[in-house]
Amino acid sequence: MIINGTEIEETFAEAFGMAATRIIITAVNSRWARIAGETMTGFATSVIGCGVEAGIESEIPSDESPDGRPGVSVLLFGMSGKALAKHLENRVGQCVLTCPTTALFSGISGEKQIPLGKNLRFFGDGYQIAKQIAGSRYWRVPVMDGEFLCEETTAQVPAVGGGNFLVLAETQLQALTACEKAIEAMLHLPNVIMPFPGGIVRSGSKVGSKYKALMASTNEAYCPTLRGLVKSKLDPTIASVMEIVINGIDENDVRLATRAGIQAACKLGAPAGIRRISAGNYGGKLGQFKFHLREVMA
């Protein structure tokens, strides 16, 4: 399959089951809501070192938010419900509770509930107030700028993490430009985040390492500077590879985002130095979900 001169490789992305949640952060204006969202999703690129993968899903206009103020919607993904709950509490406690004017709400429904303000309330040192509104329980925690309003719990839902595609280009700048265009197209989609910096990964990894302490290490087959030394998957025309990793609430969300991203990258196509689109997998042995690129783009 070739789109605008760019080859879509006959391969698949391998993704895993994860646990996810969505929270809504509102604030006095969209700037402060975004600051809170960005702070709590900082250092959340990969579960390998960060505990959870998180990102801002979308901005929420004031007429659609729970408390009539502008907000952001944040998605968090963990390898288990327990890990997700632990890191969610840590992050909202350090980054949202502390951020001026913010309030915090659950943005997803489901059977399994995990604490949001349930334990955060103890910051109120006994002066916190519970309020039951329209079937949900909220906590009003007195803080120095007024009151921090926080929903007691949010839902944890099964999700898909690790969807991906690789952009193989003639130069580093071309790979970056194509990935930027892809991210631009994917940011408008609901239910997905691209957790890496700016949505793009330049250090795609393989499982394991020659060093025992490391769970993951560089994917030498896609490193252009190792061509000729290792069993490379890069032909001589390719000088840079970048990856976009996608986490979504369900399989279809990841599929739609993959398609939108690849379409945008291929719009630049061969004339812009985009030679090939590939994907990362582990031979199909590890992940529950497979996204065959040619099927996704069909």
Partner: peptide
């Protein structure tokens, strides 16, 4: 005071 929960409650 501006109490945010009132917005939720009245809504």
């Amino acid at each position: 005071h501006n109490l945010n929960f009132l917005t939720l409650f009245t809504r």
